[in-house]
Amino acid sequence: MNVHRLPRLVLLLVLAGWVRVGSADTGQLREVVQMNGLNVVIFTAPTPLRAGEVEVVTLVTVEATGRPVLDYQLDVRVRSKQWDTEALSLLSMGVPDPGTRFAKKATVLLATPGEWELSVEIQAPEFDPVTVVVEVAVGNPHPLWWQLLPWLLAAVPCLGLILARDAITQRSRRRFPAS
């Protein structure tokens, strides 16, 4: 193997990996239910929940065998217990989840802090639909500047690096004045 070709090989491998991109982080376990011959596990992320976009992740297996069900449709409705309004989740749940086969993911908007109901509906072929209602407490969202804090403070480590380099150089100059 010509060592000159290795970077191209690495590039190819990494690009090949991009075929399906998604997130596998499941989040906090909310509910495990057995219904209509299925096991349904529901996770939510982020932890703790804050007003804004929230991910609802589901894992479905056959109750009798434990075999994961891969091709099911996920639909999530959300309802604020304070406002008593109902809204469909932001993303269509019929779209296969990008990236993972075990878990499907839906992003929903929980617009305000408070108590919310997530109504998770699973429609798996050969099984009756399963609806699970999960009640969640949603906290205040972080302010925008807080969410962007790593970006806002990006300059600080750079300045630290410049100063460290300068300090090292000065120290060396003192030790070896000719340099």
């Binding site: 990996g17 399906r20 596998a24 891969l70 990236g99 086969r101």
Partner: peptide, 10 residues
């Protein structure tokens, strides 16, 4: 199936 499809490239 999952080995083929469940890659979580970041």
């Amino acid at each position: 199936d999952s080995a083929m499809d469940s890659w979580n490239i970041r």
